[in-house]
Amino acid sequence: MDIVLEYCDYYLLDKVYAYALPKGGYVDTLIHQSPLFNTIAQFDLGKAIKTVPIIDHITSTNNTLVSNAINFNATSINSANLPSYLLNKVINYQNKADIYGLKPNLLPAGDFFSSSFLPRSSLFRESLSLLVITTLFGWLLYFSVAYLSYVYVFDHKIFNHPRYLKNQMSMEIYRATTAIPVMVALTNPFFLLELNGYSRLYMDVNDCNGGWKAVLFQIPKFILFTDCLIYLIHRWLHWPGVYKRLHKPHHKWIVCTPFASHAFHPVDGWAQSLPYHIYPFLFPLHKVLYLGLFTFVNFWTVMIHDGNYMSNDPVVNGTACHTVHHLYFNYNYGQFTTLWDRIGRSYRRPDDSFFVKENKAEDTKRMWRKQVDQMEEIRNELEGKVDDRVYIDQ
Rank of each mutant, 00 (worst) to 15 (best):
V4S: 13
C8A: 13
C8T: 11
D9M: 01
Y11G: 09
L13Q: 04
D14P: 05
K15N: 13
A18P: 01
P22G: 00
K23T: 14
K23Y: 13
V27Y: 03
F37C: 01
F43D: 04
L45S: 11
L45W: 14
K47H: 14
V52E: 12
P53M: 14
H57I: 13
S60N: 05
S60D: 06
N63I: 12
L65P: 03
L65H: 06
N68G: 11
A74W: 15
I77G: 11
S79P: 12
P83C: 09
V90W: 09
A97I: 10
A97W: 06
G101Y: 04
K103Y: 12
P108R: 03
D111N: 05
F112H: 03
S116C: 09
S116A: 07
F117V: 01
L118M: 06
R120S: 02
S121L: 04
L123N: 06
R125K: 02
L130W: 01
L131C: 11
V132S: 07
V132M: 11
L136T: 09
F143L: 04
V145M: 01
A146Y: 05
V151C: 07
Y152S: 12
H156F: 07
H156E: 09
K157Q: 15
P162C: 02
L165Y: 03
N167A: 11
E172R: 05
Y174C: 06
R175F: 03
R175Q: 06
T178K: 08
V182F: 04
M183L: 06
N188R: 04
N188K: 04
F190E: 02
F190H: 07
F190A: 03
L192E: 00
L193K: 11
S199H: 03
M203E: 01
G210Q: 00
L216H: 05
T226L: 00
C228N: 02
L237I: 07
P240M: 13
G241F: 15
I254V: 09
S261Q: 07
S261K: 02
G269A: 00
Q272C: 11
H277L: 15
I278R: 00
L282H: 02
P284F: 00
L285N: 00
L291S: 13
L291H: 13
G292A: 07
T295H: 02
V297D: 12
V302E: 08
I304K: 10
N312D: 11
D313M: 13
T323H: 15
H325C: 01
L327K: 03
G334K: 09
F336L: 13
D341Y: 03
D341W: 03
R348I: 05
D352P: 10
S353D: 15
F354T: 09
V356W: 09
K357E: 07
N359T: 14
N359C: 13
D363I: 08
V372Y: 00
Q374G: 09
E376W: 04
I378S: 00
L382H: 08
D393R: 06
Q394L: 08
Q394T: 06
